[in-house]
Amino acid sequence: MRTKQSLFAEDERRDIAACGRSLACSRPAARSAEGAHEPTPTPYFVLDELFSHLAFDEGSRLLDVGCGTGRVLAYFASRGFSGAAVGVELDGDLVTRASSWIGRFPQLSVRCANVLDEPLGAYTHIYLFNPFDTPVLARFLDKIEEEIAHPVTVIHMSDNGERYAYAGRPGWSIERQGAFQWFEGVQVFGYPQTYTIWSYSGRAALSALDNDKKILD
């Protein structure tokens, strides 16, 4: 009979197949920034669903915010996605663990940093698994709007209550949304974990729209 423990054991087997070691976090992370949450590796069945409808090409650049030991990076590489993936993590020990295996994958990198201090202009996809409180999320969304000129896809997992931080922001639209709680008859989460995949048109498109409106006026 399948259990939650057997599902997590299967996740570890997929970790080992992808990068040669388990990427489960065995202890709480040291999070120094106010509003930051402890990292939790995303279960593979969630990643399979979230990423199944996304397209990556050679120009794609994925940012995993609060990457922990790097499961999303490992998933990106194991699926053979084109482009590059970058993880940003506050906990230096977790960055060391992630850095210990990504060297064999030239398209992957990880940095020990606060994402609010990182330049965002190059990214086409951003993944969030509830990395920080809503006020920090609002600052992060402001930063996206200030720095990213082109269209960008934001995959926000476990955004329970936080999706309202996106509401009313010009240029943002929902591509897909749903929730996870059970997988193949096993209750993985204590309550439904909602997700939303957002599309942001980018600063350049909004500027062009503003200019068109001024001409019409």
Results as ranks from 00 to 15, higher is better:
Gly87Tyr: 14
Glu89Gly: 11
Glu89Ala: 12
Leu90Val: 13
Asp91Cys: 13
Asp91Ser: 09
Gly92Gln: 15
Asp93Thr: 11
Leu94Ser: 04
Leu94Glu: 02
Thr96Gln: 15
Thr96Trp: 08
Thr96Ala: 15
Thr96His: 14
Arg97Leu: 11
Ala98Pro: 05
Ser99Lys: 14
Trp101Thr: 06
Ile102Ala: 02
Phe105Lys: 06
Phe105His: 15
Pro106Ser: 07
Leu108Pro: 09
Leu108Met: 08
Ser109Gln: 12
Val110Arg: 00
Val110Phe: 01
Arg111Val: 15
Arg111Gly: 09
Cys112Lys: 13
Ala113Thr: 12
Ala113Asp: 15
Ala113Tyr: 09
Ala113Ser: 15
Asn114Ala: 12
Val115Arg: 09
Leu116His: 15
Glu118Thr: 14
Glu118Ser: 07
Pro119Val: 10
Pro119Phe: 07
Leu120Gly: 11
Leu120Gln: 11
Gly121Glu: 12
Ala122Cys: 06
Thr124Tyr: 08
Thr124Arg: 06
His125Ile: 08
His125Val: 12
His125Pro: 05
His125Ser: 05
His125Met: 07
Ile126Lys: 04
Pro131Asn: 09
Phe132Asn: 07
Phe132Thr: 07
Asp133Val: 10
Thr134Ser: 12
Thr134Tyr: 03
Pro135Gly: 11
Pro135Ile: 09
Pro135Lys: 07
Val136Pro: 05
Leu137Gln: 05
Ala138Thr: 15
Ala138Lys: 15
Arg139Val: 03
Arg139Phe: 01
Leu141Ala: 11
Ile144Tyr: 04
Ile144Pro: 05
Ile144Met: 05
Glu145Thr: 04
Glu146Val: 05
Glu147Phe: 02
Ile148Thr: 04
Ala149Leu: 03
Ala149Ile: 02
Ala149Gly: 11
Pro151Asn: 10
Pro151Cys: 09
Thr153Ser: 14
Thr153Asp: 10
Thr153Arg: 15
Val154Pro: 05
His156Ala: 09
His156Thr: 01
Met157Cys: 09
Ser158Val: 09
Gly161Arg: 08
Arg163Gln: 15
Tyr164Gln: 12
Ala165Cys: 13
Ala165Gln: 11
Tyr166Asn: 07
Gly168Pro: 10
Arg169Tyr: 08
Pro170Ser: 13
Pro170Val: 09
Pro170His: 10
Pro170Gly: 07
Trp172Tyr: 13
Trp172Ile: 08
Ser173Tyr: 02
Ser173Leu: 06
Ile174Val: 14
Ile174His: 02
Glu175Ala: 13
Glu175Cys: 07
Arg176Thr: 01
Gln177Gly: 00
Ala179Asp: 00
Ala179His: 01
Phe180Lys: 00
Phe180Gln: 01
Phe183Met: 02
Phe183Gln: 05
Glu184Ser: 06
Gly185Lys: 04
Val186Ala: 05
Gln187Leu: 11
Val188Glu: 09
Phe189Ser: 10
Phe189Lys: 06
Gly190Arg: 14
Gly190Ser: 14
Tyr191Ile: 00
Tyr191Asn: 03
Pro192Tyr: 08
Gln193Glu: 12
Gln193Trp: 10
Gln193Asn: 10
Tyr195Thr: 02
Tyr195Ser: 01
Tyr195Ala: 01
Thr196His: 04
Ile197Gln: 02
Trp198Asn: 01
Trp198Glu: 01
Ser199Pro: 04
Tyr200Leu: 03
Tyr200Gly: 04
Tyr200Asp: 05
Gly202Met: 07
Arg203Ser: 10
Ala205Met: 00
Ala205Phe: 00
